[in-house]
Design a protein around this nucleic acid. Structure first.
Lengths: 199, 199, 199, 199
DNA sequence: AATGAATGAGGCTTCATTCAT
DNA sequence: GATGAATGAAGCCTCATTCAT
């Protein structure tokens, strides 16, 4: 859940019920996917009755979409907030990489849900629009760095997809315990990905 | 479907019914996922009755697992077959990259199914074992190239996950029409990923 | 709602909440029937919370039964009050016909609810008893008029059912806008129905 | 069920399953209304599993609409078939009255379902169109008889609604056992209703 | 008195699977 | 082998009703 929704220092038991539902749903969706998760599954994990979910969300689809949008906005905001507008591109890249890694380690379920699942069947138009935010932002940065001759002169979209793909692949391996994301590993992956895109 | 599954003597124009089912299932699973696909969905796409599927596969789970193993084996075999055992690492990498891209372009559904979906809920032990094949193979290559001082001296798994992640991200973008995989783009992505892992 | 149900001392401009509920329920039941109407439906139409209904009625069934009895009593009382005990039968009939038409035009929902719906599933014994009132009254009149040789000498129940059926059919058509009930039409239908039962 | 759907002399046990469902649904709807009847209710009465209904009807609504249209068409056809095109109006009326009474006695549930319930919430456009048939037919007859000076010179719709209303009221009383429809009663009601509309 | 969150049973419908033909 | 009718469990969602505030 985005931090501002919880009061700092509160035990999770006193989360608003809406957030409890979102949390439970997130964990279920990550484990079994949208279609593999039933509303009773979510209710059980949230410790409430199945009918209660419908006081907060009109449907299962509305629930996933809320989840998707909330967390997409959250991660985008973190990257935007941390981004050093006037630093050199190499540093910008490093900050972005670390910010994303921080997020993906702190909110494993959220990141796995957002990036490691196919959502096409049930996401609505607005959710898809929200998804563009981060990529449009990255796209602009790539173009400018290319203009400065720092990045490889190829389709900026290709560079972006390679970088985000590498990041996602790395995180998937972390979640499956095939690798461990030590600070050294973060530094190494940052370095490797910069080498991938820079000239 | 890999050709060797057809019974000899059958006219090749008519795929065996078993393969028709596997094809139909593959397309359904890619579009809507395992849990989002019903047996009647598959039957309809295959142009047969729902009950007929059970003459070839004992259950829906057996069907996905067969699909997964068949295609995993297929892609692994292609990479193994194309791999130039005695060429220099840079060329080995390039060949592997192109072989995978060829496959992923030719068998979009199969690749999307294998790499872009979460299978954890329904894959059985044997399928998971098959999945290791390609990665173990790559792991060995990475270790040897590192010993030669050609690759970055970091966790070989990390390098592998970054490379495969980048590849998957690229292909996902291709399937979503965010980029086009021209020969030039293949060459550029090959180059970029080699830069990512090499010293 | 019949006026006598309001508590004295309440400003007449604001219907008592009990009556607001009865009104809202009446309209819902007419539109969608008892089983097709939910308590939240009623609450929404009444502009109150769903729980509030239970301060005035112990259950949905109690609510319909109250509605039924209240309005059945109301219409019966109007007919009784208007009935000219010592006028000739033809005039008695005309008065009754007009009184019923007045009521059915003024309280469309109430009349439609009472006569145009099947209540058998949820009406309790007392409500069914109330229903007999008007029919018993009419039955007595028919018998006396038959004894005077004014009405056809057939089963008095048959005559009654024909007359009330014709009236209900006419009103159903009015509510569906298939006919308009002008004073002339009321006179014509009165005349026709008298011709139906008289010798 | 319309007669032509059953083979003569066959025990009802061999009715097609589709007809078994329609029969069961008819009885349920008559007793408890559309919204008061659940699909499991219908299935139980039909002696089948709930899911089986969906092999024959795509939804509960489709089921009622089929029921409505089938029976409306059936009764209309009977009246049309029996109607003596060239007989004098008085005889035409008598035939129609008897034909309807025959039908309503033989197919109590069907008649009660068609005429004694409010269907507005769930009937689709086509069903409503089918409903017009009989009434349009009657309307034409009324107009012609009025032109001949045989019927009261008032709104033909009013006359029709009175007659059909009287008929429905009579049948409702029959079904509730408040009256018995002997041949004498049929004759008497025919006579009474003719007196209602004729000059 | 009034609210509306909460419940859990039940309604409509879908689905994996079986089996008689 | 092939079919598709049949099943009944399970899924999404609604609803009458209760109860803490």
């Amino acid at each position: 859940m985005p931090a501002e929704k919880r009061r700092a220092g509160r035990p999770p038991a006193t989360l608003g019920k809406r957030d409890v539902i979102l949390d439970a749903a997130l964990r279920c969706f990550v484990e079994r996917g949208f279609h593999g998760t039933s509303m009773p599954d979510i209710a059980e994990r949230a410790g409430i009755a199945a009918g209660t979910i419908y006081h907060y969300f009109p449907s299962k689809e509305a629930l996933v979409n809320t989840l998707f949008r909330t967390w997409k906005a959250e991660i985008a905001q973190r990257v935007f907030a941390a981004f050093p507008q006037h630093a050199p591109p190499r540093e910008q890249f490093a900050i972005m990489w670390r910010t994303m890694a921080d997020f993906a380690l702190k909110h494993r379920d959220a990141f796995a849900f957002l990036e490691l699942h196919h959502h096409t069947t049930y996401l609505d138009g607005e959710s898809i629009a929200v998804d563009r935010n981060l990529k449009d932002f990255a796209h602009g940065i790539v173009r400018r760095a290319q203009a400065d001759g720092l990045l490889k002169p190829v389709d900026p979209n290709l560079l972006m997809e390679l970088v985000f793909g590498a990041f996602n692949g790395m995180m998937a391996a972390v979640y499956d315990a095939r690798i461990t994301l030590t600070p050294a590993a973060i530094a190494a992956s940052d370095e490797a990905c910069w080498d991938m895109v820079s000239v």
